[in-house]
Write a protein that binds this DNA or RNA. Structure first.
Lengths: 160, 160
DNA sequence: TTATTTTTGCATCAATGTTGCATAAAATTC
DNA sequence: GAATTTTATGCAACATTGATGCAAAAATAA
């Protein structure tokens, strides 16, 4: 059974013990189980958003060096179970892959919504990216769609 | 006659004298005509790609301070005749708007293609972004589509 | 438990985004 | 056209992020 599949449904994996799930998951991807990796992975599981490096640094109370978090994210990207999500302010965010992505190919296939108010980037897993047709010898490999606006929550709160 | 319209077709404006076109254009947008602004604008006209700040610095031979170029781009963004284009490597690029965008609303409406080989970001003006339908009270304001892959030119050259 | 391999923390550097302030340049007024 | 007002520029400075080298520490294998 592929842990990728398990991750496709966060609810499932959340029933496993915290230590075991991250431990097993990391080993599945040939990554050593270290404190930083377990903690970063746990945050990915508990937060259903695309997360920035700064988010991890703050939420782990600067327990780990920023380079370590940077390299942790890089190892997760290389392993292929997170993907990079574009951000309109230049930086990058990262999110768990919800489908079977290969290391090179991250057609996560869904739209990302960044709220201008709360700043959160939400994976709109229900909204898939349509096929685009390019002329001539253009070879598309990855497609990123970033929508900015006001999210559900913020729209409801300010909308009276 | 709106200069925005003129810009919609680069060929047209290229027939005007270099000095006059940038001068008039800037004034149309209530921007003072300065050396840096004219030069940056000229590059936007001559290069049919989304350009990075570094591109301007290099191509203007570091004639202007990087902060000046940064602020020039910002003033152009505020004026509303360029829009920010996402880049997969974190940074931002900028491109002339080819439609009438308002200051706040930059539905430039087309797909951007970034070539992994030559690094250029091409505005695929022919490929429009479809409408996405968001649930609940999500309010989409801007939609950015960034496709990475191999462009026409690079694909052709390496492809035989 | 020891040996091997990988990860971490720290130092360091480059690039980029951003602001404040004094000076320079552009537009406006006389 | 000279003086005045307004705005832009250059420079210093600082924050954030991406990235690499290296010795020490931790994780796995033997």
């Amino acid at each position: 059974m592929h842990y990728n599949r398990i991750f496709a449904n966060r609810r499932k994996i959340l029933t496993m013990s915290a230590q075991k799930k991250t431990d097993d998951f990391l080993k599945e991807y040939d990554l050593r189980s270290t404190g930083c990796r377990r903690d970063v992975l746990s945050l990915f599981i508990s937060e259903p958003y695309a997360l920035s490096q700064a988010f991890f640094e703050e939420n782990l109370h600067h327990q780990y060096d920023r380079v370590t978090i940077y390299r942790t994210l890089k190892s997760f990207l290389d392993a292929g179970f997170i993907h990079k999500v574009l951000d309109d302010t230049g930086g990058s965010k990262y999110a768990l892959c919800s489908e079977d992505c290969t290391r090179e190919h991250h057609r996560d296939g869904h739209v990302h919504f960044k709220c201008k108010q709360c700043g959160k980037t939400i994976c709109m897993e229900k909204i898939s990216i349509p096929a685009f047709h390019f002329p001539g010898s253009y070879q598309a490999e990855e497609i990123n769609v970033l929508v900015t606006g006001i999210c559900d929550q913020c729209g409801y709160e300010s909308g009276k």
